[in-house]
Amino acid sequence: MADTITLNVTKREVTGKKVRHLRRQGIIPGVLYGPEFEPIQLQVPWTVLRPTLREAGGSQIVELNIDGEKYNALVREVQRAPLRGNVLHIDFYRVRMDVAVTTDVSITLIGDARTIVEGGGTFTHELTAVQVEALPGDLPPEIQVDLTALQEIGDTILVENLPELPGVTYLNNPEDVVVSTAYMRAEEVEEEEEEELLIDESEEPELIRRREEEEELEE
């Protein structure tokens, strides 16, 4: 478990269409809710919220400090504008540290698939997040998958191959593919060869100029 992230927010009195005025001031409206818990409408400056979103993702406990009262929560949903992607609203889900929760955890690739690439193959990151169940304190910030486990083209890494973590249960189908490998398609090989050819051709004028300069010096 990573260190708890603290976020200072305030209760929100503005509701409905009036929240657009908050957004114009750089303030993001939100809500804290949970089982057997009266929802709390809240607000937080975007400059304060942004680093928290980057660090917490959806699997790290955020300690919300709401006007002096503290609550443990997970980021449950971030609503964004369709075109510009600006954050419009954020939902926090209140958790109890002694009750298991279900959430998605991102999958991060580490190491390299050098054996696959050198053999004329390529790999694809099929599953970028996995659903887990765990106590809030056992939730990992990410699941790391080592690509060096891929030794032959055709090898795959499945959910059942993910590392065992104390207190964490994977809820996806064990046979879901996380990373797959295959031979590079002919068109991909041609594209690489064309890129190499373009690089070689772009270097030729420089080489010609150097030869001409050397010949002039010899004369």
Rank of each mutant, 00 (worst) to 15 (best):
Q60I: 05
E118F: 10
L147G: 01
D98Y: 11
E219I: 12
A129K: 10
E206S: 12
E219M: 12
T52S: 10
R209C: 08
Q151A: 11
N86A: 12
L207V: 11
G68P: 04
E126A: 13
T156W: 06
E118M: 12
L171P: 09
P82Q: 10
I157D: 01
E194W: 11
L135S: 01
V168Q: 07
L74H: 04
V48M: 08
E191Q: 14
L150T: 01
A2E: 11
L127P: 01
E69F: 08
N173W: 09
D112H: 08
E204Y: 14
G68L: 08
E201G: 07
D112K: 07
E191Y: 10
T102N: 12
E204T: 13
G120S: 07
V177S: 05
I143E: 01
E175I: 12
E63F: 09
G121S: 05
E204K: 15
R50H: 10
L32K: 02
V87C: 03
Y71S: 02
E133H: 08
T169E: 15
E175Q: 15
P82W: 09
L53A: 08
L42E: 03
M97D: 08
L42K: 04
L139H: 03
E196F: 09
Q41M: 13
A113V: 07
T47K: 15
A56G: 06
E195R: 14
L7V: 09
S106M: 15
V179N: 00
L22A: 00
P29Y: 04
A149C: 09
R23A: 03
L74E: 02
E13S: 13
F37A: 05
E206Y: 13
D155N: 11
E36T: 09
Y71M: 00
D91T: 07
I116H: 00
V44Y: 04
T10Q: 12
R80I: 10
I90V: 15
E204G: 10
L147F: 05
T181M: 08
I90M: 03
V177N: 05
D176N: 14
E164Q: 15
H21K: 14
M184V: 13
V44S: 01
E191T: 13
G120M: 07
E142L: 13
L150D: 01
R24Q: 15
